[in-house]
Design a protein around this nucleic acid. Structure first.
Length: 421
DNA sequence: TCTGGGGTCCTAGGACCC
DNA sequence: TCTGGGGTCCTAGGACCC
């Protein structure tokens, strides 16, 4: 049976999460900022209506925020991740096959659902709203790309009430005409410009374009997108997403770093976090890359440098990862520079249970594994975490998040209080 | 003063081989 | 004098997604 894709997408997800726990925010313009309170990463509909732009640095808009009465929040990823799980668990009950596509989106396969798809999706939407407080929109189509397009229009069209079905080919024509080509899933701003250059302005024009021409301009993915718009399925539902190929932990610093020690402490912290993620997936890394950089906005010439190390045996022990990261940072550091960001990238990931042991291995693998298990288990609980000495205790470079709200659902201290009247 | 973070895939070009 | 061409692998960079 051919699949029928339904894309469930949370509306303004981060802003909606903040609103769930603070009814005072209902109907108010809300924006959520990225790490370090850097730029805007989410806006409520009210903020969009005020034309607060996405992705702009917050410090440039402080005046607007005040004047327009916009509520501003630091990002609160622990909260969003937990709310995401709640939404996904709710949605999963409505279809036998689901792909969690991102923190706020899931594709369902509705093939075989006996009811009218729109009515069924209305039920999904209402249930998610009732059980989690998060509003969602749902787009339905014979391909993922058409479901994406349907979702976009569902959000934009008030009469759709958050649900739009594009399974019927006749409905596709009118709908695709209303979508700018750069907004088609997989095209993006660059691809959009290229297509505009040959007179293709909207999704309908792309669907009717010459395939060979599109392939030459955008490569095979452009052609796939064209087919998908025509209703020919190129992308399937990935219920079990393939294992990660790389793990990245990188951050900008809350304050510029000028000493080797601080740069090492910060980067050791990223390495430790990368190790946790690695072990969560039961993997080990064959290769580690470390990079450091200064800001592009400084007077001085920007400095970027990276070093890549191949482990003799794939590594998953935080001590080994940290030691390697420290050595790299030592090589990459340059006195007199104001460092803005560093990052740790783990690649060539392999299954941790299938590592070829070495004759001259100095690390006792069994002992290492047990130690890491204990540390990880302790750090999973709420309470003071175990950290490595190399991470230091002076975290003056740490993230700024001046306006973070409580971690309502993931920290005992932050549980909301309910008062009876 | 303050400009995010985490991922994937494709392509072009060079090195190398036969 | 004639000065190939196809294949593979690797890497860097670019583009996309959220």
């Amino acid at each position: 049976m051919n699949p029928i894709f339904a894309l469930v997408d949370c509306n303004n997800f981060y802003a909606s999460c903040e609103r769930v726990f603070d009814p005072r925010l209902k109907g108010r313009p809300i924006v959520v900022l990225s790490n370090n309170d850097g730029c805007i990463v989410a806006r409520s509909n009210e903020a969009k209506a005020l034309e607060i732009p996405m992705g702009r640095p917050a410090f440039k808009l402080e005046e607007d925020f005040r004047r327009l009465g916009v509520e501003v929040f630091s990002s609160n990823y622990a909260l969003y991740a937990d709310m995401s799980v709640r939404v996904m668990e709710t949605v999963a009950q409505f279809a036998p096959r689901m792909e969690v596509y991102s923190i706020d989106e899931a594709f369902l396969d509705l093939a075989g659902i006996p009811q009218d798809a729109t009515a069924y999706c209305r039920m999904i939407r209402d249930t998610v709203r009732q059980w989690t407080g998060i509003p969602v929109s749902i787009g339905i189509g014979p391909t993922k790309t058409l479901a994406k397009a349907a979702n976009r229009l569902a959000k934009r069209t008030p009469t759709a009430m958050g649900i739009l079905d594009l399974t019927d080919p006749a409905s596709q024509i009118e709908a695709l005409r209303k979508i700018e080509v750069a907004d088609v899933w997989g095209i993006g701003p660059r691809g959009g410009k290229k297509l505009q250059g040959i007179g293709i302005a909207d999704a309908l024009a792309l669907r009717q374009a010459d395939g060979e021409r599109v392939r030459r301009l955008l490569g095979v993915n452009g052609l796939r997108t064209l087919y998908e718009l025509q209703g020919t399925r190129c992308f399937g539902l990935e219920e079990n997403p393939p294992a990660k190929k790389s793990i990245i932990v990188s951050r900008s610093f809350g304050k510029k770093i000028e000493t080797l020690q601080a740069l090492q402490e910060a980067t050791a912290t990223w390495a430790a976090r990368a190790g946790e993620k690695l072990r969560q997936e039961n993997r080990a890394a064959g290769v580690m890359s470390v990079y450091v950089m200064t800001s592009r906005f400084e007077q001085q010439r920007p400095y970027f440098n990276a070093q890549t190390v191949t482990f003799a045996r794939p590594a998953s022990d935080s001590r080994e990862l940290i030691a390697t990261a420290l050595a790299c940072v030592k090589n990459l550091f340059r006195p007199g520079l104001r460092f803005h960001k560093s990052g740790v990238i783990l690649q060539d990931l392999v299954d941790r249970d299938h590592i070829q042991l070495g004759l001259f291995d100095r690390l006792d693998r069994t002992q290492s594994r047990r130690l890491m298990e204990v540390v990880d288990r302790i750090n999973l609980r709420s309470g003071p975490p175990i950290f490595w000495a190399a991470q230091g205790t002076q975290t003056e470079w740490g993230l700024r998040s001046a306006r973070r709200l409580p971690r309502y659902t993931t920290d005992w201290k932050d549980l909301p209080t309910v008062r009876a009247r």
